[in-house]
Each structure stands twice: as structure tokens, then as C-alpha cells.
């Protein structure tokens, strides 16, 4: 895998919500700059509300930045690029009126995969996440962890080079997260995809990623990027290793001040100005 070529380039991206001068104006991101090489798994962490989802949405073409630009393979992102980028959202976005496999197939239909190919690909990706036995269940019949597996299968079924994951495990309990994290590591090591993974779990960030990017409190900027030198797929003993612990502590130090900042911001009335 050629890790030297940059696939996603984030160049001075800022995003503000609300008109200039409006007291409710929120500057979510401020000149964020980031290069992501092909095949990398980058974790994005930062205080809640610092603009992580905003950045992901801009990269995915679901939002347009106020200034700056994002390029994928040298082409500026101007809207969703379903052929290149797949999403896994934090909230459940499986359509409750369709079965698991029909959800996966519908994604492919949207993307433009020919009808004859969909069934086989859908079965494959469900198998990859261990959900093949639930193909004909409805999302409402699944647990939270299973739903996230299906969302992952739907994203994988699109066979894009890039996958953006926005806190995909945030709503799950600790044990489920751990298992899903390990499975994800194994799965992603095989696929060689370029992945941005937003999380608020420091351990998860280190466990999965090649690099961890830390964002500052709002307006979000890239504060620091940490390399995690550890071969994929990560074994479960990496989870308990001193190395991971040390990196977790480093991230904690970095984040601690930022989180404090958001707290004081919130405490002041109208402090968002």
C-alpha cells in the first residue's frame, strides 16, 4: 500500500453558522488543515461541539465550508461523492421500513450499482460484519450494536475508497464498543481503505488509528497529531499495553485544557459571541 500519496487534503477550512454580526453566530471550525495519506486510519478527537462532525460533513460534501477547500484525489469536493466516500453515522440511519439486507441493497441502488450485483455484494458485506444471519430482520428488531454493524456493512457494500465514521459507537455500551472496535480493526486492516474516525473515546482513538488528530475547543483547529506506530490488525493485548496507556495519557493532557475551555464558555451567559 502506497502510504505516501495524499488522498484527502483539507486546506484552511473554516465553517461558521449564522450571518456575520449575528450574536448567535457560531464559528465551528477555523482554518483546519490536514493531509491524509491513502490507506490511513485517522482518528479525530476533540471536545464536544468543537466541529468534528462539521469537518467530516465538509469532507463528505454534505456541507460547504465558509472558506477553504477540501480535495479528494486532487479534485475539489463540491457535493456528496458517493463513488468515493461512504458514511457511517452516529445516529441510526437505517431505514426502519426495510429489512437489513434491503437497507444494504438500497444504498447500492442509490450509488448506481446494477441490480444483479447488489444481492451478492450485500451478502458479502453483511458477512464481513457478522450480520449474515440477520439479513431478513428489520432494524427495529436489532440491538444498537447490531444496527451499527449493519450501517458499517451498508458503507462497506458501497466499496468506496474512503469511509467517514462519525462517532459510530458513541451510543453503545462499553463492552459492545470494545468488541466492535476489535472487529473493526481486523476488518479495516484487510480492506486498505482510507478512514476518518471521529470518536470521543481516547482509548478507541489510539486503538484503531494510524494517527490521532486532536482538535481544539471551538472554533476547532488541529491542535496536534500523534502517530500510533503499531501494526494492523491490532490485537486485544494492545488494548491493555503500556504503550497505549501512555498515548492515552498524552491525549488526555492535550484534551484536558480544551475541555475546560468549553466548560467556561458554556458557564458564561452568551459566551458564544
Amino acid at each position: 500500500m502506497n502510504r505516501t500519496s495524499t488522498v484527502i487534503k483539507v486546506e484552511g477550512v473554516s465553517q461558521a453558522f449564522g450571518a456575520e454580526g449575528d450574536p448567535r453566530r457560531v464559528v465551528a471550525l477555523e482554518s483546519a488543515t490536514l493531509d491524509i495519506p491513502r490507506g490511513e486510519l485517522l482518528s479525530l478527537i476533540g471536545p464536544s461541539g468543537c466541529g468534528k462532525s462539521t469537518l467530516l460533513n465538509i469532507i463528505g460534501g454534505l456541507a460547504t465550508p465558509t472558506t477553504g477547500r477540501v480535495t479528494i484525489d486532487g479534485v475539489e469536493v463540491k457535493g456528496p461523492s458517493p463513488q468515493k466516500v461512504a458514511y457511517v453515522f452516529q445516529e441510526n440511519t437505517l431505514f426502519p421500513w426495510r429489512t437489513v439486507i434491503d437497507n444494504v441493497k438500497l444504498g447500492m441502488a442509490f450509488q448506481g450499482v446494477s441490480k444483479s450485483e447488489r444481492e451478492g455484494r450485500a451478502r458479502e458485506s453483511l458477512e464481513a460484519v457478522g450480520m449474515q444471519d440477520f439479513a431478513n430482520h428489520f432494524p427495529g428488531q436489532l440491538s444498537g450494536g447490531m444496527k451499527q454493524r449493519v450501517q458499517l456493512a451498508r458503507a462497506l457494500g458501497l466499496q468506496t475508497e474512503i469511509v467517514l465514521m462519525d462517532e459510530p459507537f458513541a451510543a453503545l455500551d462499553e463492552q459492545t464498543r470494545m468488541v466492535l472496535g476489535e472487529d473493526l480493526s481486523v476488518l479495516l486492516a484487510r480492506t486498505g481503505k482510507t478512514i476518518i474516525f471521529v470518536t470521543h473515546s481516547l482509548v478507541e482513538a489510539v486503538f484503531l488509528a494510524d494517527r490521532v488528530a486532536v482538535l481544539t475547543a471551538r472554533p476547532g483547529k488541529i491542535k496536534k497529531i500523534i502517530n500510533v506506530e503499531e501494526p494492523h490488525p491490532r490485537k486485544s493485548n494492545f488494548m491493555t499495553s503500556a504503550k497505549l496507556g501512555a498515548m492515552r495519557n498524552e491525549l488526555y493532557e492535550l484534551l484536558h485544557d480544551e475541555i475546560r475551555k468549553t466548560m467556561t464558555l458554556r458557564a458564561e451567559v452568551g459566551g458564544d459571541k
Binding site: P80, P82, A86, F89, F110, Q111, R154, L158
Partner: peptide, 15 residues
């Protein structure tokens, strides 16, 4: 969220 998910996967207006 449904609409965003569908659009991110390339759904056109009719779909």
C-alpha cells in the same frame, strides 16, 4: 438523518 444518509449514498431526487 435519513435524508442525509440517502444523499451521501448518491440518491437522486426521485429516489
Amino acid at each position: 438523518a435519513y435524508i442525509r444518509a440517502a444523499q451521501s449514498m448518491g440518491a437522486n431526487d426521485f429516489q
